[in-house]
Amino acid sequence: MPLLSVKNLSVSFDTSTGPFKAVAGIDYAVDAGEVLAIVGESGSGKSVGMLAVMGLLPKTATVTADEIRFDGRDLKGMSDKERRQIIGRDIAMIFQEPNASLNPCFTVGYQIEELLKKHLKLGRRERREKAVELFKDVGIPDPAERLSSYPHQMSGGQCQRVMIAMAIACNPKLLIADEPTTALDVTIQKQILDLLMKLQADHRMGLIMITHDMGVVAETADRVVVQYKGRKMEESDVLTLFTRAQSPYTRALLSALPENATGNRLPTVSELMSADGAGASA
């Protein structure tokens, strides 16, 4: 039985020009200890889908699903209070902008200790020890001293490490990473991805990696879901995706990678999809 299973998820938003369907009937399934990458361009609904599962969307969104099941429990029928207990503890999430996800008014140590207090009910002393330990795990140098730093005193990469430390603080079974390295430089991206993969393996976590970057997919994923305009275009294991992609959209996307260019022109998605005779059904 998968750790998280979502069936026929749809999300639509009210806009001034009428309802807009961001996700149209998608199934997701993640096993424990598995890395699932959800890939898509902007407007593909890749983040919205996961936010809907977490119940983090604003009121203007309408979410429907046949099933949202996590670790054998039904998230859909659950009260908000019950769901909040699971989220943040068994399911954790990290976002694209590490600086924006941390509260600038408090030290990072305070923020991580608050979290430990709320979810693990630890005493003051234990909290501090656990925080230091977590900082050590995510590779922050001088962990004890860094606890009293404010977010603005840390670099983007350091802040993302803090976010990861907070995310794994309660030993979550599932970690959702929404474009965790998009705002970072490539050398830092490499470190953060390596860190995530190491933690994932050590804790046997399920990891959902939401990204637009095929390079990140190649370096992290076990299985890949490709999304386009709120629909699933393809789902396959990572090797199959890069060698024998089934859907024309995926093939088009892969050939639009500059490193796959032959000659001095890049094939574009629209050209390829019309050549394949399978234009996107809008």
Binding site: S42, G43, K229, T268, S270
Partner: peptide, 11 residues
């Protein structure tokens, strides 16, 4: 189609 369709945030 190629521009507005693939890359658009809003409808």
């Amino acid at each position: 189609e190629s521009e507005a369709g693939v890359g658009a945030d809003i409808p």
